[in-house]
Design a protein around this nucleic acid. Structure first.
Lengths: 115, 115
DNA sequence: CAGTATCCAATCAGATACTG
DNA sequence: CAGTATCTGATTGGATACTG
């Protein structure tokens, strides 16, 4: 990767890329600390595998903190790191824009999500 | 797609997903109106195919305007729509956060981009 | 409860060649 | 100049079954 146009934007995208990451972050941002299955329930269509891998990546990027309680049955809690909380404004802008976008596209009869 | 957790965030991601889209938008945001090859030159590693398809998708979402001048040799200009300009704050937040992220990850010896 | 492991289908991305 | 077309390899995502 040359660093000619290697903007921060690229890096941000890289950290946020993945079908479910913004949704996961949005959940954690709204609810705070959440357990694995709690997160899973809050995102109906996600599979266990996807939730795990996306969480691992977010953890790797220090955006999400994973707290394991060594007990039976297992208990694992996820939360935004102080560092991860700094992307909240981005998510909020996205949320705002996305909602307006849905409205706009609906008014112009253009399909957005339903492939 | 159920619309339980179908937030605006999802929609925003959907419109912005693609390896090059944020970079393309960032270019247009910085430079304003740009021709096809001008865009291509400003994004060193992009292929013609990728640039075309990503631009088409952005056009479909009414984020980018495509102006064709019917002349030989062809001239096509791309620019952000009024509507597309509304995502500028998002890109700026991403730019800001991404730059800080690079710094942070470097300090902690964690790789970000170089797969 | 919170995961792994496997396998498979779909999508994405790159290289290359060609065109009005 | 600004694209299309085609082929191929890589990456992602989903379904399902199993586990400490």
């Amino acid at each position: 990767m040359e660093d000619k146009t290697c903007h921060g934007v690229e890096t941000a995208v890289h950290a946020l890329v993945g079908k479910w990451k913004p949704i996961i972050l949005y959940q954690l941002m709204e609810t705070g600390t959440m357990r694995f299955n709690e997160l899973k329930r809050s995102i109906p269509n996600i599979t266990q595998k996807m939730l795990t891998t996306q969480l691992r990546e977010l953890e790797y990027h220090k955006i999400v903190h994973r707290e394991v309680y060594p007990q039976v049955p297992p208990k694992v809690e996820y939360s935004l790191t102080e560092y991860g909380k700094k992307i909240i404004p981005i998510l909020q802008s996205m949320q705002e824009w996305g909602t307006a976008h849905q409205q706009y596209m609906r008014e112009n009869d253009i399909q957005t999500i339903e492939k």
